[in-house]
Amino acid sequence: MKSVVLATVFLTCVVFASAQLQCAQKKPNIPTDWIDMASPCVKKMRGQIQEELKASMQYLAMGAYFSRDTVNRPGFAKMFFQSASEERDHAIKLISYLLMRGELTRDISHMIKKNLVVPKTEWATGVEALKDALNLEATVTKKIRDVIKTCEDPKDSSNFNDYHLVDYLTGDFLEEQYHGQKEIASKISNLDKLMDKHGALGEFLFDKKISGGE
């Protein structure tokens, strides 16, 4: 009798064990002294991820507009689609950096807004779109400088100057911003001069030129 009871108990345990999958695992016990980013700086960095994605969506809308059949500016479209993917890559680079520093272990489900509203979807001319692009880049540059400022002097109890991140943002992100801005400004200059007397022809030729990746 005793053995029957034991067998039943044993069987129940087996049934229980097989019904429940071991999805969860024990939380690892890892020292945290190496995680040294100041929280105001982390907050700014998280915000910047959203900013880069916003810029990416704006470029996507520009690409979509210049692809239209009746607009037909494949060179502009190609350039703006490329910029959209580049901005998305920047967001991913920022995420990777935070992960490398031991951040983003929690509360990431709401880090990205899913439907990012695009403020503008039509442009009268290529020059107008390029000018918007230059302003957009200038805004992003300013926001990166803000992140740098906060991460250099977070103004909290830690007083932690994040040399490595500041260097990364300056050497990598700002470097790319300033080069990119100059490039857009030069494009505006060339196209704007052409548009003065040869509007339609100027934009047509310019579009073919940039579609060749020049």
Binding site: M57, L60, A61, I112, K113, N115, V117, V118, T121
Partner: peptide, 10 residues
């Protein structure tokens, strides 16, 4: 192309 017009968070 038409993009979403409402700003909704996840």
């Amino acid at each position: 192309m038409r993009f979403p017009e409402i700003d909704s968070e996840i």
